[in-house]
């Protein structure tokens, strides 16, 4: 793990020194991916758009984590911390979405206007 990596370099401190090549490669990849994600919005792919946008963002994030943030060279427990925090956010999203979307049809959608403006009856389409 960590030990092995410290030894690969002839450097006498703690931690790992990341190669310039890697740093610059990651930088280039990040910029290219940013350009890509902007360009891709020009095509209307329906629901695929958000999937692609989030996919690209995830790839970018992974690159930053692995190399800029040294996770690739680090003790694996640090990665576990990161991954589990993201996992818990996903659990949070998932369960609340399951619930909120289930009772959504029961909610009067034009509630605000119907409350605020008696001149607007509920059934009038906007």
């Amino acid at each position: 793990m960590n030990e092995g990596n410290t030894h690969n370099n002839e450097h006498h401190g703690v931690g790992h020194i990341v190669d310039w090549k890697v740093l610059i490669g990651v930088l280039t990849a990040l910029l290219v991916l940013t350009y890509l994600t902007v360009k891709v919005t020009e095509f209307d792919l329906g629901p695929l758009n958000i999937v692609i946008a989030l996919g690209i963002a995830t790839v970018k994030a992974t690159l930053v984590c692995l190399f800029f943030m040294h996770l690739y060279y680090d003790q694996p427990f640090n990665s576990l911390v990161l991954v589990s925090s993201v996992l818990f956010v996903l659990v949070f999203i998932l369960f609340s979405l399951i619930d909120l979307s289930a009772y959504q049809p029961d909610i009067i959608q034009d509630y605000i206007s119907s409350m605020r403006d008696p001149a607007y009856p509920l059934d009038e389409p906007q």
């Binding site: 818990f88 659990v91 369960f95 399951i98 619930d99 289930a102 009772y103």
Partner: peptide
């Protein structure tokens, strides 16, 4: 403990989530 929070909301949630929680 992270996936049971809904049991505080049985009276305000949808039936599906109630059953899961």
């Amino acid at each position: 403990s992270f996936i049971v929070w809904g049991h505080h909301m049985f009276t305000s949630m949808s039936p599906l989530s109630n059953m899961i929680f």
